[in-house]
Design a protein around this nucleic acid. Structure first.
Length: 267
DNA sequence: ATGGTCGGCTCCCGA
């Protein structure tokens, strides 16, 4: 049966709840993983989302910053979260679910952005980002027998040359520096993760999921980056059916600067 | 040309 997972950095789930509702009604994924919800669990708009058919909701939130949530049509269980770098941020949430006979674990991540200066000796936020992705190497796609794994989220790194509008011009820009892109690829290698979107899009093809608010003509300039990712264990690669990067969502009313990324598997 | 625009703990900070 087809199974669709979506990931979207929503940049305040309360402010953009109408966009989330529109997205769910129109695209109807089985699971939606949100990042930057920016609200504590008690203020998460769960009632509205449950009424749309997403009756199973896992939330890891905090006041004002960060925050991740996983909405599902299928029952969720074995919910866990890891406090990466032990700083108390809400940046990770992991759940289990079953789709027919297929057992799945889904990790939802919001990786630190890392500030502006790509030098940890003068920018602690960049150091935090590097420490975070170093710790992410421990997250394996093969952690549980007979359970396939999916890892999604705003990873705040564009790993490949065609994941940014200009590889040369962004080499010293946080999100595309070699220490970050090498680090992200190392997580994939050591954790046995496959990039489920790039598995369907040739590396020659540019692909972005984020366009800055600061560009006066984001569509015309098209200076995007692919910061949002869907990874999976290798057994899921033969099950890939399609993907969609919903670029139109960047042009919706009061948009997030990130757009939804969807992957459909035949499970 | 080192700007620009968003969000929320709003005259500042993080992204």
């Amino acid at each position: 049966m087809p199974f669709t997972i979506a990931t979207w950095n929503i940049n305040s789930v309360r402010l953009r709840l109408p966009l989330v509702e529109h997205f769910l009604r129109t695209y109807d994924p089985d699971v939606l993983c949100l990042q930057e919800t920016k609200c504590p669990k008690e203020l998460f708009p769960g009632t509205t989302l449950k009424a749309l058919g997403y009756e199973h909701i896992a939330v890891h939130g905090q006041k004002g910053y960060h925050g991740v949530a996983t909405l599902s049509k299928h029952p969720l269980f074995d919910e866990t979260r890891r406090d990466f770098c032990a700083v108390g941020d809400s940046r990770h949430l992991s759940v289990r679910l079953d789709v027919g006979a297929q057992r799945l674990r889904i990790h939802n991540f919001y990786v630190p952005a890392g500030g502006d200066e790509p030098d940890r000796t003068i920018n602690a936020k960049f150091g935090h980002k590097l420490d975070f992705i170093d710790e992410m190497r421990l997250v394996s796609a093969l952690s549980e027998p007979d359970v396939s794994s999916i890892l999604v989220g705003d990873l705040n790194i564009a790993p490949f040359e065609t994941d940014v509008w200009s590889h040369k011009q962004l080499l010293k820009i946080v999100s595309h520096t070699p220490v970050e892109t090498d680090g992200l690829i190392r997580i994939m290698t050591e954790g046995h993760w496959a990039d489920l979107v790039r598995a369907q899009v040739p590396l020659e093809q540019k692909l972005y999921t984020w366009w800055s608010y600061r560009a006066k003509d984001w569509r015309g300039a098209d200076k995007g980056r692919r910061l949002d990712h869907v990874w999976g264990s290798a057994d899921l690669v033969p099950r890939l059916a399609r993907y969609e990067v919903l670029k139109d969502a960047r042009g919706w009313e009061r948009p997030s600067d990130h757009v939804p990324v969807m992957v459909t598997l035949n499970l």
